[in-house]
Design a binder for these strands. Structure first.
Lengths: 300, 300
DNA sequence: CAGTGGTCTAGACCACTAG
DNA sequence: TAGTGGTCTAGACCACTGA
């Protein structure tokens, strides 16, 4: 009855009613526990409290969080209020509801939501994923432009990766499914893969402080999506990303890696990914060969 | 008490529980009133009924729909159920809630949501919109590829438009706001505009049957977003769109119009827009010069 | 002031999952 | 069978808008 969880402000009189991202803005101040006022509807406050637990790693990706009734009791509010908070978190892809089982912390390592951030689709045939080839993995100091994007100081420690993604390349027509595929259906994570046309040339920058033990070996060893590894091995969850897309001519350095002539038009995709509190934690610059693939987008 | 509005099926026992897009799927059959079974939660049925009214044009874009209590009385359900239906429709951008005023039919002709589908942003300076220049407007027969996308027969009547969008072009640096702008802040709809660098070359295909009186004059006369005109003048509401994006080399025909050299890398954006019932009603093929602009996308 | 949407509650019954 | 999320209701009070 008198648990230590009575944080919730029962503010029935709001001073000025923050626009709508009140809770999100309050969370930007990552640590300072009681610094931000954050007066907002009860369910927004609950949402903020749950987000904080997620951020603190109390409930790990893939695990289930307490039931709605449980949370309602903890926060001393009704189930409906908790439900509304969870509804929004589910809409934000932070939680996943599963009827009869519970509510789970979303993860990049799931079956269906794999490649949540990769919008490249083949023109023909179904998407069978791509093989990865690591070109480069080194720790260095952040150039000025990278530092600015990652919200750190120029010269700070960063990890730089360079990768190639290769399409399965099954026969000339690229139509239906060919090639017996010795392993089975799942996409060929890394591995030899021998052939396959290069489609994406990636350059990835990560803050060195967050990714201490990241090495080429660990990258090669991990089977599964890279963002899945980030959350499992380094506790860094990618929540949201912004991309800037352009058309660019292949330069002398990139062209041979993508097996195209210099000047060949490539899609340039600059992605900045964020974790909790809108903190940028990855800068990714990709060059896509869109001869047999396209970037799919949905507008609502 | 016994109004003629008692359509709602109070199905407490669902046969097989359609996945989730049950109501949406049911609406695909545009007319056939009672053909589709469409058993689903009450609020989904309400959502479907409201959508049908929108589709029928009972409530026009920009107008307000009846209040929640009113709708609840009509449909003989509680306000909470209507609320949940409206919540989803608002999330789908079909309705807009305004506290204290009511719920309104979303429109492309609004201030903030203008350019809902245009994701092109200038590298520097704030977005001041672009001037339009109509190159071509003619009625013709649909080529095979266009017909396939628009879900009609090859040779059916279509309207073909070709446009140029021009950036404001204020001085060399393109930095802060320059040029006194004699009219004021709003973007320069059409008009002379005299200068301005061409940024987008658009080719638009519309089903002829839906756009009867569309002429170059009416296009030029209309001030405001093109999608706003489509809904005001032709009753065609763009709800959703899918885009396929590639990098392409400028060809001999496009290059001079965009004032670039042949072979210059351009962003190719193919957009298919849908109205109610996922019916495709516009195919738009654009070539974007991304030298000083980029295509912005957000991943969640 | 009356009417609107926004929040919150409490309780009922349902469908799904797993032991 | 017990526990979970999913739906639905009824009613309370609130904040915002406009006459």
């Amino acid at each position: 009855m008198d648990e230590p969880a009575g944080f919730v402000l029962q503010c029935r009189t709001m001073p000025a009613a923050l626009p709508s991202t009140a809770a999100a803005a309050a969370l930007a101040a990552t640590d300072a526990a009681d610094a931000a006022p954050a007066f907002s509807p009860l369910y927004q406050q609950i949402k903020g409290l749950i987000t904080r637990e997620l951020q603190a790693g109390v409930w790990k990706p893939g695990e289930s969080i307490p039931s709605e009734l449980d949370l309602a009791a903890r926060f001393k509010v009704s189930q409906g209020t908790v439900r509304k908070a969870i509804d929004e978190l589910a809409a934000d892809n932070l939680l996943v509801r599963r009827q009869g089982k519970g509510t789970f912390v979303a993860t990049h390592a799931e079956q269906q939501i794999q490649y949540r951030f990769l919008r490249l689709m083949p023109d023909a045939g179904s998407d069978r994923g791509m093989a990865r080839r690591l070109l480069d993995c080194r720790r260095t100091r952040a150039p000025a432009d990278v530092a600015r994007m990652l919200d750190c100081k120029s010269g700070d420690a960063v990890v730089q990766l360079r990768r190639l993604l290769l399409a399965p390349s099954d026969g000339p027509q690229g139509g239906a499914v060919r090639r017996p595929s010795p392993e089975g259906s799942p996409p060929p994570w890394g591995g030899p893969a021998a052939d396959g046309k290069p489609v994406v040339l990636d350059e990835i920058w990560l803050p060195g402080a967050l990714f201490k033990g990241l090495t080429a070996e660990r990258l090669a060893d991990y089977k599964g999506p890279m963002y899945g590894m980030f959350e499992a091995e380094f506790g860094v969850r990618m929540i949201r990303a912004e991309e800037k897309i352009r058309a660019l001519a292949a330069d002398a350095a990139s062209a041979p890696l993508l097996a195209v002539a210099p000047g060949f038009p490539l899609l340039s995709v600059e992605r900045l990914s964020f974790t909790y509190g809108d903190k940028p934690v990855e800068l990714r610059r990709g060059l896509y060969n869109t001869e047999q693939h396209f970037y799919r987008n949905e507008l609502n």
